[in-house]
Design a binder for these strands. Structure first.
Lengths: 108, 108
DNA sequence: TTAAAATATTCCTTTACAGGAATATTCCTA
DNA sequence: TAGGAATATTCCTGTAAAGGAATATTTTAA
């Protein structure tokens, strides 16, 4: 799992940008206006999101339209797969650990 | 979506800790040893993970056993739901935006 | 009740990063 | 081709957070 994705999404404004772009691609100015950010910060956040591969740009005339790239979300989804077993109850390794302790089995 | 989760996972060592705990609950010392971290840093990272709700503790004798809490991962999973439409091809809003431009339809 | 093991916390320093303001760049249009 | 709109970049500053070292705390065991 690529940690850069988490870093990019850790910043609240960037998470907002992503959630906004889910509704559709937008140029920088619209993003800034809708989220009440000023333009330079918006561009900077978009830069980070771009570097992390979370969004991509398509220039149209004067503007640069940003849209979400699905790939990192797919990667996140695959990573989460490993954790689904957790809440599907097939795994309570704390109990396992307790058993290890009681059975005196070494832990490596 | 709670951004604290992303912040907690943005730190590489913490992501490693989470991936390690997926294999089973462990006390601090074992985590430190397996990841080649020193003990204080490990405790500090576990603190952050705890505050974010990603892990929980159960004291056993001298030790404190850390294990993953499934809930935040479920939250992440639900959040990702909104994005699954993206890679299922039911959504290419960049095209939508282009149509808006061509059709002179206002964008709000 | 004292020593030692396991863990948590504090203090300090350094670094990364977000925001603000100003400016540079790019591209269209008249 | 000059001006303006849209966007990107740079510089500066303040702040949050990570790592190291030392120390405090808790719990067990003798």
């Amino acid at each position: 799992m690529n940690g850069q994705i988490f870093s990019a999404l850790a910043e609240p404004n960037r998470l907002d940008i992503i959630d906004l772009l889910l509704e559709g691609a937008l140029p920088v100015g619209d993003i800034a206006k809708k989220l009440d950010l000023n333009q330079p910060q918006t561009s900077k956040h978009l830069r980070v999101l771009c570097d992390a591969g979370l969004v991509e740009v398509q220039p149209i005339a004067n503007r640069r339209i940003y849209k979400i790239r699905p790939e990192p979300f797919q990667e996140l989804d695959r990573w989460l797969d490993s954790y689904r077993r957790l809440w599907e109850g097939r795994m309570d390794r704390l109990d396992d650990y307790l058993n290890v302790l009681q059975g005196k089995k070494p832990l490596n």
